[in-house]
Design a binder for these strands. Structure first.
Length: 228
DNA sequence: ACCCAGGGTCATA
DNA sequence: TATGACCATGGG
């Protein structure tokens, strides 16, 4: 397997998305810790559900590393219930907080190289490749390209990827093709998600996919759109 | 009633 | 290494 898109190919997709949707200004959060919490809460979960959970945490004053560590797990679980997998995610949030504490806070992490920081995040139970990369790009502003199911799906259906590539292969392909540009990675991933929400999550699925002419709906939807 | 959602871990073969 | 089970709420 290999994924080696050219810079031109990638820019073409990016430009189409940007022209239709404009800048997205991600991540939808006010400070880095909120980004990290959101990255965990949104695992396999609709963002609308995460918004409710984050709102609850803010209301309760638990949207900080300290407060979250001091809160009783049952209380934390109840607050994040709307985001699903609430028991699992309660543990994962605590793992994140303990990691930040043991690392000497977010400031100490700024000293690390991107590779070191990525390995450190991945060593936390409950933080996998995408969650780590969300944090690296949107909280730490490191040039790491985020791969999610939409990214894999759209580039497979565009014919640029085979679909069997590993997470790391895809990430490397984007980073090699585009070069290390935080701003670009930020907008690109945000636009991919925006396209998925805006166009293809509305039913009937495929008819409205005028932009990249590819359906991003679930794996059952194999149809491509032609014309226009 | 069914499918989907901005994944990740763990047990098994 | 590669599948499968599991986690769970809310919207279309």
């Amino acid at each position: 397997m290999s994924f080696s898109p050219s810079r031109q190919q990638l820019r073409q997709v990016f430009d189409l998305l940007l022209r239709d949707y404009g800048k997205q200004g991600w991540w939808p959060a006010e400070f880095p810790f909120e980004v990290m919490v959101g990255a965990i809460l949104t695992q396999n979960t609709a963002w609308s559900n995460v918004e409710t959970a984050i709102f609850n945490l803010k209301q309760a004053g638990l949207l900080s590393q300290r407060a979250m560590l001091q809160a009783k797990p049952e209380r934390l679980a109840e607050l994040i219930r709307p985001s699903g997998y609430f028991n699992l995610k309660t543990d994962r949030l605590n793992n994140l907080c303990r990691f930040l504490q043991d690392s000497g806070g977010e400031c100490a992490l700024l000293e690390k190289t991107t590779a070191e920081l990525r390995d450190a995040l991945l060593s936390v139970n409950g933080i996998g490749p995408e969650t780590a990369d969300d944090m690296l790009l949107y909280a730490f502003e490191r040039p790491v390209f985020v791969i999610d199911t939409y990214t894999r799906r759209i580039f497979t259906r565009l014919g640029m990827a085979a679909g069997e590539e590993s997470y790391e292969e895809l990430r490397h392909g984007f980073e090699a093709g585009l070069g290390p540009h935080v701003r670009l990675y930020n907008e690109f991933h945000a636009l991919i998600v925006r396209h998925a929400k805006e166009v293809c999550n509305t039913k009937p699925h495929c008819e409205q996919c005028s932009l990249v002419k590819i359906c991003l709906m679930g794996d059952n939807c194999q149809r491509e759109i032609s014309g226009n």
